[in-house]
Simulated scan of single mutants.
Amino acid sequence: MQNSLKKSRFIVFSLAELLLFLSLWQLLAMTDWFPTYISSPAVVFGIIGEMFMTGEVFPHIGVSLYRSIIGFLLVVLFGTGLGILAGFFQPIGRFFDPVVSFFNPIPKIALLPVFLVWFGVTDTTRILIIFTSAFFPCFIATLDGVRGINKLYLWSAENMGASRFKMLYRVILPASLPKIFDGWRVALALTFVMMFSSEMIGSSTGKGLGFMILNADAYGRTDIVLAAVTVIAALGFLFDRLLIALRQRVLWWQNR
């Protein structure tokens, strides 16, 4: 009952915030506080409705989601797996500590020329840009989650004769899942952020929401730019809520 009430309040407050933002935006657009090239919400949502009615946006959404989801799944696989190993096995952790400290501050878009030389203007290059950007938040959150586990849990498992493998999946993984999900949320947001940057590569191919934005900007169509940005934001919000729902189902003991 209490959880249902909290969810209802969240939905009400979220809708109120969104309506307040859109109303303020529409009001400023109507009173000429914004430059004429910045479209109003009515125009932007009209463009979105038109794109969905004609179906022209669906191929772009499909291509962008393909790149983002593949990049995110690779991050979940390698970032989580290596983070658990580095947190549990000290030699592996000591190996990765300087590597992460050195490579994490590098702007990953700076690696673009290297990827272009190796893989050309392909989806592999775009997915690698997404992967390298989102990998480190996932890895670091998982590493911190494993290292932050109460040592009493590990000592108790050792005293009961648990093997190291059994400790990994019966103690380490469940206890570090809250931090792992935090890392996944940050990584998921970064996949959508970098999706646009990656689609700036070879935009002449004409596929992806990033291409829509660049193409519309070239023709001065700010309404289409804002419409595509809104679609990206809506997709990011949808997948973030799906991840939160998965977290609540997996970490059911936290709600209790």
Rank of each mutant, 00 (worst) to 15 (best):
S4F: 13
S8D: 04
S8I: 13
S14L: 14
A16W: 10
L19E: 03
L20R: 02
W25D: 00
T31K: 14
F34E: 02
T36L: 11
I38Q: 01
A42P: 02
V44E: 07
F45D: 07
G46Y: 02
I48Q: 01
E56M: 13
F58V: 07
H60R: 10
R67F: 03
R67G: 05
S68F: 03
F72D: 00
L73M: 13
L74Q: 04
F78R: 04
T80V: 14
F89A: 06
I92G: 09
P98E: 15
V100N: 03
V100T: 12
F102K: 11
L112Y: 05
V114D: 00
V114A: 08
V117F: 09
F119G: 01
D123N: 09
T124S: 09
R126D: 01
I127M: 03
S133T: 07
F136L: 05
A141M: 12
T142N: 06
D144F: 13
R147I: 06
I149H: 13
N150G: 04
L152P: 01
A157H: 10
F165A: 07
K166F: 09
L168W: 04
R170E: 12
I172K: 07
P174L: 08
P174M: 10
S176A: 15
P178C: 11
P178W: 08
I180D: 01
F181R: 04
R185L: 10
V193P: 00
M195I: 06
F196S: 04
S198F: 00
S203V: 14
G208L: 02
G208M: 01
L214K: 07
N215C: 08
A218M: 15
Y219H: 15
D223L: 04
I224R: 08
A227F: 06
V231M: 01
A233T: 00
A234C: 07
F237Y: 05
F237W: 10
F239T: 01
L242A: 10
L243K: 05
R247D: 15
